[in-house]
Computed example of a mutant assay.
Amino acid sequence: MKVLRCPVVELRQYTLHPGQRDVLIDLFDREFVESQEAVGATVLGQFRDLDDPDRFVWLRGFEDMPRRAKALESFYGGPVWQAHRDAANATMIDSDDVLLLRPASVRGAFPVPVGARPIPGEPASLPPSLVLATIWYGNTPFDTTFVEFFQQHVRPLLTETGGEPLAYLRSEHSPNTFPALPVRMNEEVFVWFARFADEGHIDQHLNRLQLSQRWREEILPTLSERWARAPQRLRLAPTERSVLR
């Protein structure tokens, strides 16, 4: 049986003071990657939001909720965060926009990255790419029936139109095991991620999707019945040290 990579995932969106995003990214990529992974977290990816110059988005994974608590206690109580927290916090207006997720199926987990993460200051070994994160907000839980619908009907069409999902996740409703860091509870979300060569390929995918008769007549009506509000799309540019790229 395939073992899930990072059965618990945080999708973290930070609102920053104007002009501070690159300051935070430089600090994050230099100080906060290996130091988190040394205590049991996995930094899955970190990104610039192409549509908001003051938003930093990143993904962090854990083996389970108890180990999440242990890892966060170790990191935020440890010397690296203590040394740099004031500088990091000075860049931020809000860091509480956090969704707690779990892979929607074994096939929905994030893949193991290919190649090593560049060391600070070195260029990435893989060519540039962009990641599109799509967040669907549900009026009911995204249950097993919905996951089967996504896998059998939605995912093939996303793939055909050039947006094959890298991963797809749904809400994790376990109690927050590290309450010092808030998460958005009492929400039902389904989030999928896809990788593209550039903005043009994202636009091509979205245009093909909107023009698809299957999307308009078969899939979108079913999705719309479940949506509590309009979906959110994040067009994300990986930082130099992001392994998800």
Rank of each mutant, 00 (worst) to 15 (best):
A194L: 03
E148W: 10
L211W: 07
S125D: 13
P103K: 00
S212F: 02
M185H: 15
M92H: 07
Y137E: 14
R102Y: 01
L209F: 03
D94H: 08
Y137F: 11
A133T: 11
P103E: 01
Q210E: 15
E164R: 09
G162Q: 07
P141D: 10
N139L: 08
L157D: 07
H173C: 08
F149W: 10
I135W: 12
G162T: 08
P127C: 08
V191A: 01
E148D: 04
E148M: 03
G163F: 14
S212W: 03
Y168C: 02
R170Q: 06
S212V: 06
R155D: 04
P113E: 15
T161A: 10
V147L: 02
I135C: 13
P156M: 05
R195D: 02
P156E: 07
T134I: 12
P128G: 14
D198C: 10
S95I: 15
F110W: 05
P175G: 09
L101W: 00
P182E: 10
N89T: 12
R195T: 10
V191I: 08
F150M: 01
D96M: 09
D94Y: 02
P182G: 07
E172A: 12
E160M: 13
S105F: 00
E188G: 04
R184G: 03
G138I: 00
P165F: 05
V98W: 04
V189S: 00
I119P: 06
V189N: 00
S95P: 02
